[in-house]
């Protein structure tokens, strides 16, 4: 940006996302999205190990269940859930496609999405993992 020499240039501080709670929640949301990609790779590796046979697959599963990895997974899982919840909020706040004449309040859309989420999760339990 062209500036006269007497202007004081602005520089954003590196820790800008600690400046308020909403910025911090945004960074956690973005991190949650990145964690999803990491789990995508973990799942891909699971398929690789499944293809390789029972001993390879079980060894990988055992590695996932050693305490340090397991507790790291719990923290990352919290970020994945936060990512899901924020995604439902964002759908409510953006609504690029409107199904009603007036845009719905975002909390209503969020509520509908959470209910839908619970329904889809139940369907996944039965259709993909063979029920309880």
């Amino acid at each position: 940006m062209p500036m006269t020499s007497r202007e004081y240039a602005w520089k954003r501080r590196p820790g800008w996302w600690l400046r308020n709670r909403r910025y911090l929640m945004f960074q956690l949301r973005e991190a949650g999205g990145v964690i999803c990609a990491l789990y995508g790779l973990v799942l891909l590796n699971m398929l690789v190990q499944l293809r390789a046979g029972e001993s390879a697959y079980t060894a990988f599963l055992d590695l996932l269940r050693t305490p340090p990895v397991l507790y790291l997974n719990v923290v990352l899982f919290a970020l994945v859930v936060w990512h899901a919840l924020t995604w439902f909020m964002l759908i409510g706040k953006a609504q690029p496609i409107q199904f009603t004449r007036q845009p719905l309040p975002w909390k209503v859309v969020f509520g509908i999405n959470v209910l839908l989420w619970l329904g889809v999760s139940g369907a996944v339990v039965y259709l993909i993992f063979g029920g309880i």
């Binding site: 789990y39 889809v120 996944v124």
Partner: peptide, 9 residues
Amino acid sequence: TAFLFPVTL
């Protein structure tokens, strides 16, 4: 990811 990841993980 939002709809399917939490339950799968």
